[in-house]
Design a protein around this nucleic acid. Structure first.
Lengths: 351, 351
DNA sequence: ATAAATGTTGGGAGCGCTCCCAAGCCCTGC
DNA sequence: GCAGGGCTTGGGAGCGCTCCCAACATTTAT
């Protein structure tokens, strides 16, 4: 049904090879021939078969995006963290003429997870892989790290961190900045509510918290450090458990958590920021919709995806050596929930 | 570097064809040979080259997911509408041994849009396509409809509706149900705030609204019908403009819109549902987080994606004829914002 | 003018698989 | 005992492209 190179060649009165050269913009084709061939190609609306090209070149121009996680964690999440990441990836990929293969799965259970990862690593469709969650993709990383497969993870992996390429933010520094800000404002009894223990983002934010506290000579009650999930529910639950401890500030390691914290504090009649300062992490759109608006750490989610993709492309082209590890900058966005803006500032804001 | 069929054949002392037969579970291989070949395959961790297989079979086992829309509309949207759809698609696809190619793009501008769609329709990588937004994909539909390419859209397309396969919900009926519910509760002056005029979902919900009003013998002031976007901002803006009209109910054609409506009403000191009943559409998780909780139309977003994929697979296998058009069921979820639950019910809820 | 360098073109081989056909095998039935 | 049928097996011919090499044409340098 479809035409092939040979057909075009016949119609243009040249050889298959010449048509191939024209299509691939090889230099050594005379202008006249080039012109003639292009004309036939246009006329026939010819498009070379990608698959055949892949087979011949051993390159697919496809990037795999791996979201190995329970569906709920990713998509019912209003933060749109993963979708935003994917957007950053797809943008760069499409722009560089790569297609993106989306792998969603690994819904928890061991066997499923296993076969999901096997499917990805054996189906050699992609020239490279972006793993959106290093911690959840651990088994995949373990099986890829000793193969020639090219991949980069978002988030620093727990294992093989020295051998794999990743893009992340300096979570330690970012968390430290957030907590130092609270300390500067006179807060002393500061708790942290964070995500899963095994998640390196989660883990590093605790380190940053501890460093800030220690540097300020503030003792940390172990009960002040609460691990959970990066969601609203954890925020509510954790805050309820923290309520009796007489704190004056909470650092929520995600805005989702902060949302839950704020809600619980409101229900408990605790005034934010007067009685309790709150700082979040992520700078989601939702952070400006709360009352009071959330002070939070901004980090470039979409850019993480984009950067990881550029990096991966570099690895594929061979223009950069493995492994590459990059930390993207973050900054503190001061709004109302930390109490840094005094009454007058707030009046100005609303004026 | 990698082994191929021939290598395995040599190691197993058989021919390429026999190995191929074993891998593809063809019946006519003697048990002994089959066993021997499997053993070599396991030993060598052999995995057949997908690309070569694609070239030979002219089938890719890949489904394309097309999200032709501005990024912001899709991912900054807390409703996770598109991610949820994608999840439904990927689930079915992976389960049937299909991979999914994700096409995100068409960021508004004509030229971009054009080249985005060209890229999709010429790159014959997918056995079939799922178009996530019929209205936004119009140019793509127009170019695909006269080709042998297989595709199904979510949402009924504005043009070629009789010729394309799609999966959607009965928006007319759903909207009608919502509005009839308000009428039953004694509301008379009911407005509708909906999405883009060119979106068929949007359009049909208005039809449903009009049918319900007409059936009840209620005249509709043209100012009561407001078109906008499916977002919070539209809800706020539209509600502000509706405030002076002395309404007693608003049907928001998406929960996002309803969120904006609720916010504006709160700021204006209008009590919901006493002074103004509000019904939404979508049944997002956020609908239960509002005060009062939102009465809304539930529709199966994820199932839409899953159904569309099963349908597409059917078209690919040739087991169903084109075109197929299906309407999935919806239902009204009664919560507090419509005023159907009286004080006692509410007490029970909180007890 | 002529050898050498350069530019242009065509064809063969190969990427790794599937599918078809023919050949060889064994078994059954007359 | 031998023809005819069904299993099992191997090899050839693609799928449509790229890439290399050799052949030929055209310049350029001497």
């Amino acid at each position: 049904m479809n035409l092939n190179l040979e057909d075009i060649a016949r119609l243009a009165g040249v050889s298959r090879s010449t048509v191939s050269r024209v299509i691939n913009h090889h230099p050594n084709v005379s202008p006249a021939t080039r012109e003639k061939v292009w004309q036939v190609i246009q006329e026939q609306k010819f498009h070379p078969n990608q698959i055949a090209r892949m087979l011949a070149t051993q390159r697919t121009q496809i990037l795999g995006i791996v979201v190995s996680q329970t569906a709920a964690v990713f998509f019912d999440d209003p933060s749109a963290y993963f979708p935003t990441l994917i957007q950053g990836i797809a943008e760069v990929a499409n722009q560089q003429n790569y297609s993106t293969l989306l792998w969603l799965g690994g819904s928890g259970e061991g066997e499923n997870h296993e076969s999901f990862h096997r499917q990805i690593s054996h189906n050699h469709l992609a020239d490279g892989l972006v793993l959106l969650s290093a911690s959840a993709s651990h088994p995949l990383i373990a099986r890829l790290v000793d193969t020639p497969a090219l991949f980069v993870t978002i988030e620093r992996p727990r294992h093989f961190a020295e051998r794999v390429s990743y893009v992340t933010i300096d979570n330690v520094q970012a968390a430290r900045t957030a907590v130092e800000h609270l300390i500067q404002l006179g807060r002393r009894k500061i708790a942290i509510i964070t995500g899963p223990l095994l998640n390196t983002d989660s883990h590093d934010r605790v380190i940053g918290y501890q460093q800030a506290m220690e540097a300020a000579g503030l003792a940390v009650d172990p009960r002040w450090i609460v691990y959970g999930e990066f969601n609203t529910d954890t925020g509510q639950r954790a805050m309820k458990s923290l309520l009796p401890l007489g704190l004056d500030a909470v650092f929520a390691a995600s805005d989702q958590i902060a949302l839950g914290v704020l809600q619980t504090l409101r229900e408990a009649g605790v005034c934010v920021p007067q009685d309790m300062a709150v700082v979040g992490f992520d700078d989601l759109p939702a952070a400006t919709a709360t009352t009071p608006q959330l002070t939070t750490i901004h980090h470039p989610i979409r850019e993480k995806g984009a950067y990881a993709t550029r990096l991966l492309l570099g690895l594929i082209e061979g223009s950069v050596p493995e492994p590459q590890q990059v930390l993207l900058p973050t900054h503190l966005v001061i709004r109302q929930s930390c109490g840094a803006l005094n009454a007058q500032d707030m009046a100005n804001l609303h004026g």
